[in-house]
């Protein structure tokens, strides 16, 4: 049963992933990506890692995808259709990805993973996660937890600085014009 679910999920993930990177309609691509993410969350559910699945759905589905949609809407109107990618580029990219995949799969297939026994397995509890995250003993993750907070602050400040509206100089003409004009010539 789980096996079938897994295959279904795998199919969903792969198909939507492909769709997401090939669709010429940008908003659709975002939605396909959402399906992929949901599929992955499904995988997490399958291995009883519900906490992560929840995060996956909230952070990705609720955060990132929305961010994407906002971005798309900020930049283009929703129905924007992308240009068709050149075939040559597609072929090269495909060949490169395929060969990379081949190498990877070959390496995986030649590695003798130990047989896993179902007995050793237990589902991942939220409490365990929490304990580990905040533990400073061996195997604890308090330090990355703290550091990532610094990272988030920094990224936030960075995003704000960039996204902050440009100040206009005294005479009212935005610096952009001559700035970009001049620099476009500068090849």
């Amino acid at each position: 049963m789980e096996r079938i679910i897994f295959y279904i999920l795998a199919a969903v993930i792969i198909l939507f992933a492909v769709a997401s990177v090939t669709s010429r309609k940008i908003l659709r691509a975002v939605i396909y990506l959402l399906f992929v993410l949901i599929g992955i969350a499904g995988l997490y559910f399958l291995v009883d890692y519900n906490f992560l699945a929840a995060i996956q759905l909230t952070v990705y589905g609720g955060g990132i995808i929305v961010l994407f949609i906002f971005a798309v809407m900020l930049i283009h109107h929703v129905e924007l259709v992308l240009e068709k990618t050149a075939l040559k580029k597609k072929l090269i990219a495909g060949a490169l990805s395929a060969s990379g995949l081949a190498v990877t799969l070959w390496a995986i297939s030649t590695y003798p993973f130990p047989e896993t026994s179902a007995t050793a397995y237990s589902s991942i509890e939220v409490a365990d996660i929490g304990r580990i995250l905040l533990s400073y003993e061996d195997g604890g993750f308090i330090l990355p937890f703290e550091v990532i907070s610094v990272l988030l602050v920094a990224v936030m400040i960075g995003s704000i600085v960039i996204a902050k509206g440009r100040k206009l100089v005294a005479d009212g003409s935005p610096k952009t014009e001559d700035g970009s004009e001049k620099l476009t010539e500068n090849k």
Partner: peptide, 29 residues
């Protein structure tokens, strides 16, 4: 642990996903 599914299949899936992403990176305009 998904019954009937070996680690190889899992890794295959994630690898495919990874390289689809790579392909997308290469081709998207």
């Amino acid at each position: 642990m998904i019954a009937g599914i070996s680690i190889y299949e899992i890794l295959t899936l994630s690898s495919i996903l990874f390289f689809i992403g790579i392909y997308g990176f290469f081709t998207r305009d």
